[in-house]
């Protein structure tokens, strides 16, 4: 495992920590899109179907369990926790799941590496992950006074896939036959979706002012 991959995973892990911290410390999930959280949970469930059948390393298995567990914990906090669930911006978080899930499912049926149920579901998770942030970005644009932790959470999520791109470049040059078109193109699309957010995030950080996205 190279340094970019490890850094990517750690940043991804940190994004979960920041999100749980924000929700727990403020007892509020204001500004967080439940739709995006549900889509990410679906992404992890679909991608880690081989959790118990395909052992790669202790590291991989542990991280997968942590990602799955944390995703479900966040869903519980946002939907089931008495105090927190009332802070959810239900009226603002209006993105339609089907607009994302349906095209990704169709694309996975059409473009995949092998015609097996596991491979198609896995490919679906790759496509869905690329666009799952969209409800969150739309909600951020509608939210006045984005708090720091929410801004940092989205920044870390974007940074994680960016670091994975460096990991893929590294692996391409160091491992023979390492070609992953589906993952690469999806990962690039995923990172591009954050560019606008990155621009405003860095600008607000440099000018030391509160993050606000133009609507």
């Amino acid at each position: 495992m190279n340094i970019f991959r490890l850094a990517g995973d750690m940043v991804h892990l940190l994004s979960f920590v920041v999100l749980v911290l924000k929700i727990n410390a403020t007892k509020s999930c204001r500004g967080i899109s439940l739709k995006t959280q549900e889509l990410y949970t679906l992404v992890f469930v679909c991608r880690y179907l081989d959790l118990f059948s395909n052992f790669i390393s202790m590291y991989n298995t542990t991280m997968k369990i942590v990602f799955l567990g944390t995703s479900f914990a966040i869903l519980y906090l946002m939907r089931g926790h008495k105090v927190i669930k009332v802070t959810y911006d239900r009226e603002q978080d209006t993105f339609r799941y089907l607009f994302l899930v349906l095209p990704c499912a169709l694309l996975a049926l059409l473009i995949h590496n092998a015609w097996t149920p596991f491979e198609v579901v896995w490919t679906f998770s790759i496509y869905l992950e690329a666009v799952a942030i969209l409800p969150q970005l739309v909600l951020l644009q509608r939210t006045q006074n984005i708090d720091n932790l929410t801004g940092n959470y989205v920044f870390l999520l974007g940074l994680y896939r960016g670091l994975y791109i460096l990991n893929w470049i590294y692996r391409y040059f160091t491992e023979p036959h390492y070609i992953q078109w589906i993952v690469w193109i999806s990962g690039i699309v995923q990172t591009i979706l954050y560019l606008d957010f990155f621009y405003y995030y860095i600008k607000s950080w440099k000018n030391n002012v509160k993050l606000a996205l133009p609507s």
Binding site: R5, D9, H12, D50, N54, I56, S57, N60, M63, K64, F67, N113, A114, E119, W122, Y164, N167, H177, Y178, I179, Q180, V183
Partner: peptide, 10 residues
């Protein structure tokens, strides 16, 4: 082969 690669990533 191509299928197995990438499954070692998260």
């Amino acid at each position: 082969d191509e299928e197995d690669y990438g499954k070692d990533e998260l």
